[in-house]
Design a protein around this nucleic acid. Structure first.
Lengths: 203, 203
DNA sequence: GGGTTATATGAGGGTCGGCTCATGTTCGTG
DNA sequence: CACGAACATGAGCCGACCCTCATATAACCC
């Protein structure tokens, strides 16, 4: 299979010159900010263009549709997450599943701090179910790999179910981190880490 | 404090005659359906009115704002959930926390089947934070009560954190139930129940 | 420099949805 | 019955937002 293009490079009308690439980067950055703090529906193309210091026309030059810029951004984020998990494998190989959980929580939290639009875009209704399922399975696959490489390796079939649970727990943890009422936040996070850690380490 | 009105009865312009009460009921029913399968943003007042067999004017007679009908519906749902948890107390008193988790999962799933708009409305951005926090704390309080009445009672401070975790897990479980890929769904749910059960029962 | 392609701009078209209002219709009440 | 309050109706206003397009500028290539 020649010329495999990463889904991160999907921008409907690809830029050709350097100036274009810079624009696309600026636009994606602005889109990240706007989608992150308004959500997909409330985000407006006008604001994205403005925050990027571009005109609406320029925005539509590279992303002919609101849906398309959201897709491109989400795909790039998903690729980055998968890459992060892959890069994590060597660091986690051989460690007990318990420690694995701890590290995953930290890394995930950091990732979402740098890609704040990821959850908002993943949650929006009206996503192509094919794409959604594919993304999810790639993420699950990475977690399964990590589980298989842990100290007492987790057997494949159970690992599949565990991966789903872990991904959900990671999202819950991030949601709790972002909640307004600070009170007892740390205790709740500890509780979750403990629970998952115990559950992963046999009993 | 006299004339305490349940928040479930909040409909900005309250109906006076029987016909009005029936309309309000029909409108709330239609709103439930529309919000549930389109989400708050994509739901339109026109469709809500149509599904209720009413005109837009009638809808606005009782709910002067889209925001208001969403609030009324959500408040009613929240009240129903709290009532359900209160009614559950006698049935659960004295049981081990483990069993408590199992029953909660079942009840929660049933509740959301009958109030399908609850999650969609709770998740929407632009909710009054005061109201959001109040609702959450009421729910947490109910869970804490249940935990305190379990076989080995869970001490108050830890119960607070546990309640938050439990509520999140309930939502995760419901989300998984509603996912398209049936494959291994039961296994995942069992995994979650097991994990929480073990964690609640001492270790 | 001339030609050609990539990129930039922003006014405005078209649509859609929340909401208003003037005009009814029903119905409890005296 | 008569009167007024509660309720009903739907055409249309208004603003917001996605997107188009005609026109302009930059930059690469010969």
């Amino acid at each position: 299979m020649p010329s495999q293009k990463s889904s991160a490079t999907i921008a409907a009308r690809a830029p050709q010159r350097e100036r274009g690439r810079a624009r696309v980067a600026a636009l994606l950055g602005a889109a990240t900010a706007v989608f992150a703090d308004k959500g997909y529906d409330a985000a407006t193309m006008t604001e994205i263009a403005a925050r990027a210091g571009a005109s609406i026309g320029s925005l539509y030059q590279f992303f002919p549709t609101k849906e398309l810029i959201a897709e491109a951004l989400h795909a790039a984020n998903a690729d980055a997450l998968v890459a992060l998990l892959e890069a994590l494998a060597p660091r986690l190989a051989g460690k007990p599943a318990e420690a694995l959980a701890d590290i995953l929580f930290g890394e995930f939290s950091g990732f979402l701090a740098e890609h704040p639009a990821f959850v908002a875009l993943a949650d929006r209704r009206s996503i192509d179910p094919k794409r959604k399922k594919a993304t999810r399975q790639k993420l699950r696959g990475e977690i399964v790999k990590l589980l298989a490489a842990a100290k007492p390796p987790v057997p494949r079939p159970r690992a599949q179910a565990l991966a789903i649970v872990i991904l959900h727990l990671l999202r819950v943890a991030v949601a709790i981190e972002g909640e307004a009422d600070l009170e007892g936040r740390a205790a709740v996070l500890d509780e979750i880490r403990l629970m998952l850690g115990h559950h992963l380490s046999g009993r």
